[in-house]
Simulated assay, not measured.
Amino acid sequence: MNRRTSFLLAFPLAAAPGLAEASELAGVWARGDGKARVLVEQCGDDLCATNVWVRPGTRNERVGDTLVMDVDPVGPSRYEGRARDVRRGLTYSMEISLDGAAMETRGCILGKLICRSANWTSLN
C-alpha cells in the first residue's frame, strides 16, 4: 500500500445527522512528504479526496486519483469509517484526526494487518 492510499478522504457532510462536522475536513491538504495535494469536498452523500497535484516522478499516483470516504465522527475532530480507492478498486478502514490545521490519516487493509499513516497540512 502506498502513501496515497493511506490517506485518504471523502465523507458525508450534511447528508446525515451528526455529519455536518465533517465539513472541517473540506479544502486542500498537502501531504507531509511534499509529494501530493488533495482536494477534499462533498461528492454525493460522501466526501472525496482527489489528487490535484502530484510531484513529478512520484510512483503509483496520478492527478485525478480519488478516494471516496464514508466516515462518521467518533469524537471531537475524529472520524472513522471506510474509504474506497476508485482507480485501484481497493477498500480501506480509515481513521482521521484533526488538530487545527494539521490532520493525520491512517488507512488499513486485511483486517488492520497492514496500515499506513500520513500527516497533512491544510492549505486553506
Rank of each mutant, 00 (worst) to 15 (best):
D33M: 01
N119K: 07
L9A: 14
N60E: 15
D65H: 07
S122G: 11
P76C: 07
R87A: 10
E21H: 07
D99T: 10
C115E: 05
D85P: 02
W120N: 00
L98K: 10
A83E: 06
S122C: 09
S23K: 15
L9D: 10
M94A: 15
D70L: 13
C43P: 01
A49E: 15
N119Y: 00
V68M: 09
A15Q: 06
A20Y: 07
C108H: 03
R4E: 14
A101I: 08
L39N: 09
V68T: 08
I109C: 03
L39F: 05
M69N: 14
G81T: 10
S6L: 01
L19R: 12
V86F: 07
R116H: 09
G44A: 05
D85R: 07
V68R: 09
T66A: 13
G64E: 11
E41V: 14
R4S: 07
L13Q: 08
N124M: 09
S6F: 02
M1Q: 09
A16D: 13
D72I: 14
A118W: 00
R116P: 01
W120M: 00
V86G: 02
T58Y: 05
K35V: 03
T121G: 05
G89C: 08
A102Q: 10
V38W: 04
A26N: 11
P12L: 08
I96M: 01
G107M: 04
V68I: 15
A30C: 03
S23T: 14
R82D: 09
N119F: 00
A16M: 09
R4L: 14
V74Y: 04
Y79H: 12
S97N: 05
L39K: 13
E95S: 15
L67T: 14
F11D: 07
C108V: 07
S93R: 12
P56L: 07
T66G: 04
R3K: 10
G81H: 08
E104Y: 00
N2Y: 06
W120I: 01
E95A: 13
D70F: 11
T50F: 02
R82H: 10
V54C: 03
A36T: 02
L110S: 11
D46Q: 08
M1V: 13
L90A: 13
G89N: 06
W53E: 08
G89W: 06
E41S: 15
C108F: 04
D33H: 00
T5P: 01
Q42I: 04
A15Y: 03
G18T: 02
S97C: 02
M69V: 10
L110G: 03
G34C: 06
M69H: 12
R87I: 03
R31T: 00
L67Q: 14
